[in-house]
Design a protein around this nucleic acid. Structure first.
Length: 587
RNA sequence: GCGCCCGUAGCUCAGCUGGAUAGAGCAACGGAUUUCUAAUCCGUAGGCCAGGGGUUCGAAUCCCUUCGGGCGCACCA
């Protein structure tokens, strides 16, 4: 189903073509003020300049050619030459029917050009807990994948976990010493303790590495052993990976993020491809030695000393770096995964790294037609406006942050609705708490930093998850209370009545879901989705207050039930399918 | 020093491919409740869109500049 704005745009374009012979894209936007109608075209103003014509007269000419009476009332010219358009109730009613019968997509169209899109996001580090710094990549990446899939693209999720690096030399060495006996037996059955143990090992190992030269030497040998595939070392390494995975996979589940073990393609996956990357670049004459390191110098990048900036792919000690891994991964995604587009979801601070990565890959001729996109986001700040940290200055653990949100949500449920059964209260607290954290993140502009505040995100009013979930619960409550068989009701519906202003406003918002989706996916901006859903929730609440549903006249009751049903469907679809936030039927 | 991002109501933020009188929410103030969950709704007030210059019919939006803040800039990721 085409969004109304798109149909209108096409009609405007045709009218301009007929009126002026110009072939230009339509400039159609939602009206800036509801008193101007629903949509407006600003083409006459733009064209008038170009054609040196009077904008109002040009608008008249366009309107004379405009065939739109199946959608809108008579167009009006206002101001300097705006063309204002008002949707006809019959058109809205017709769209409403189509949207409600489009059960899975609710009017959202599939792309006519499906592509294979690789999305690289989340990327937790092995041997460490996920912290607040992983939140945005994980949930924004997830939302991007969900949008792309709904649009009909083939999405390949890639969780580029940090499972291979010099730190594993000291960590394995540390474990080796600690578990000497088991290690020597080569039949290790020790399962590592919880993630906190491993983090503790990590701390101790780093300490020793710094202060104990003997240990540091051994660690270097161990990293070489690990890299050369020593089975015992690999076994210990694998244990660390497995244990860390036992930590983050449940977190993804808790967050409602679609990432599984099958989506993992960590740094270690590329370990055998790194030398090849360097050799290829050397062969092409792109990689050269500089101060002992092997570097590529893409054009346009400078260091602080105004010298060309290197993209270092091999350190002077021979080791490879993340730049090397990223190049190998990029090549793999193009050649093996057949990506038409690769999307990297990381914070804005890595912008330059990705610019250089893309530049080098292009210089090497590896990219062909693949579109490379770096989707950035801002930082999560504390109430003091500085990056969110614990009082002792550490990164806030993601698990603790989510647990706290759930705990606070639980307290609210307890207070507002103490009579609910305990397990339901717990379920509500989970949905509301986690939903609040995610929704707060999504509703901020992706590219800006935002201040993390439990109080704000858990507020009952305003653009928050609890408010959205509450509105959903209220709709559900109508159906429950009225014992409504919605399928039967909708089947029997003959005519849709939208006479009350609140009904018409709600109906118009309902048929704009696909429009909101299109603008959200165009720039991967989840806040466009939350803004739409919030506006929908507000319009529903206004309708709810103004228009009784169950007690409505027999004639108009089915129409109102349809509005309720579609509101519930869209809120649920938006929250659950696109944002991965749970809805609850009562709270 | 160079580069990138940002500065919008008291607070938190939208809006930025240029369009009409700059929008929400919170907080403040005033109203609505024999309820379909008031965890709601309706209304009022609140602004030199950091400052200055330019482009033009029109600038929060584009360009230049100043000030203020954040981030990045050779072997960590």
């Amino acid at each position: 189903m085409k969004p109304a704005i798109q149909i209108i745009s096409e009609r405007i374009s045709q009218a301009i073509q007929k009126a002026t012979g110009q072939n230009v894209p339509a400039i159609v936007t939602p009206a800036t003020d509801s008193k101007f109608g629903d949509y407006q075209s600003n083409n006459a103003l733009a064209l008038a300049k170009q054609l040196k014509a009077n904008p109002r007269q040009l608008a008249e000419k366009i309107i004379a050619q405009l065939q739109i009476d199946d959608i809108c009332q008579k167009p009006e010219i206002a101001g300097a030459g705006f063309i204002n358009l008002r949707l006809k109730p019959e058109f809205v009613a017709k769209n409403l029917r189509e949207t409600v019968s489009d059960k899975d997509r609710l009017g959202i169209e599939k792309t006519n050009k499906p592509e294979t899109v690789v999305v690289d996001f989340s990327g937790p580090n092995i041997a460490k807990q996920m912290h607040v710094g992983h939140l945005r990549s994980t949930i924004i990446g997830d939302c991007i994948c969900r949008m792309l899939e709904l649009a009909g693209h083939k999405v390949i999720r890639q969780n580029h976990i940090g499972d291979w690096g010099t730190q594993f030399g000291m960590l394995v060495e540390f474990l080796k010493e600690r578990l000497e006996k088991l290690f020597n037996s080569h039949s290790v059955e020790w399962t590592a303790g919880p993630i906190e143990d491993i983090e503790d090992f990590y701390r101790q190992a780093s300490e020793q590495y710094k202060n104990n030269t003997e240990f540091a030497g051994k660690a270097r040998t161990t990293i070489a052993d690990l890299h050369s595939g020593n089975p015992a070392c690999l076994e210990l390494w694998q244990m660390i990976v497995t244990e860390t995975r036992r930590h983050y996979l449940p977190l993804y589940k808790m967050l409602g993020v679609n990432l599984t073990i099958n989506d993992e393609r960590g740094e270690s996956f590329y370990k055998d491809k790194l030398a090849d990357v360097v050799n290829d670049l050397k062969k092409q004459g792109l990689a050269v030695e500089s101060e002992g390191a092997i570097c590529v110098f893409p054009e346009g990048f400078k260091t602080k000393d105004d010298k060309p900036m290197p993209f270092i792919i091999q350190k002077s000690d021979g080791a490879f770096l993340y730049a090397t891994t990223d190049l190998a991964a990029l090549r793999y995604r193009i050649n093996e995964l057949k990506a038409d587009e690769i999307i990297y979801v990381t914070d804005a601070r890595q912008k330059q790294h990705f610019e250089m990565l893309f530049a080098v890959a292009k210089m090497a001729g590896w990219v062909k037609d693949t579109k490379l996109v770096h989707i950035t986001f801002g930082s999560v700040l504390g109430e003091d406006g500085k990056p969110l940290k614990t009082r002792s200055g550490e990164n806030v653990k993601l698990k603790e942050l989510l647990d706290e949100a759930v705990k606070r949500a639980k307290a609210v449920v307890q207070e507002k609705n103490p009579d609910l059964p305990d397990d339901e209260k717990e379920n509500i607290a989970q949905s509301v708490g986690i939903g609040a954290v995610k929704y707060a993140d999504y509703s901020n502009n992706r590219t800006s930093d935002y201040i993390f505040s439990y109080d704000k995100m858990l507020a009952m009013d305003g653009n928050t998850a609890p408010y959205m979930q509450y509105v959903y619960a209220r709709v559900c409550s109508i159906f429950k209370k009225g014992n409504i068989d919605i399928k039967k009701e909708l089947n029997e519906i003959k005519e849709i009545y939208l006479n009350e202003p609140a009904e018409f406003e709600l109906a118009k918002q309902l048929i704009r879901y696909s429009e909101a989706f299109n603008s959200a996916i165009a720039d991967f901006k989840p806040n466009f989705l939350t803004a739409y859903l919030y506006e929908l929730a507000q319009k529903f609440s206004a309708f709810y207050n103004a228009c009784p549903v169950l007690d409505a006249q027999e004639k108009i009751r089915p129409s109102r039930l349809l509005l309720c049903d579609l509101t519930a469907k869209i809120i649920r679809h938006g929250l659950e399918n696109l944002l991965g936030i749970k809805t609850i039927e009562r709270m």
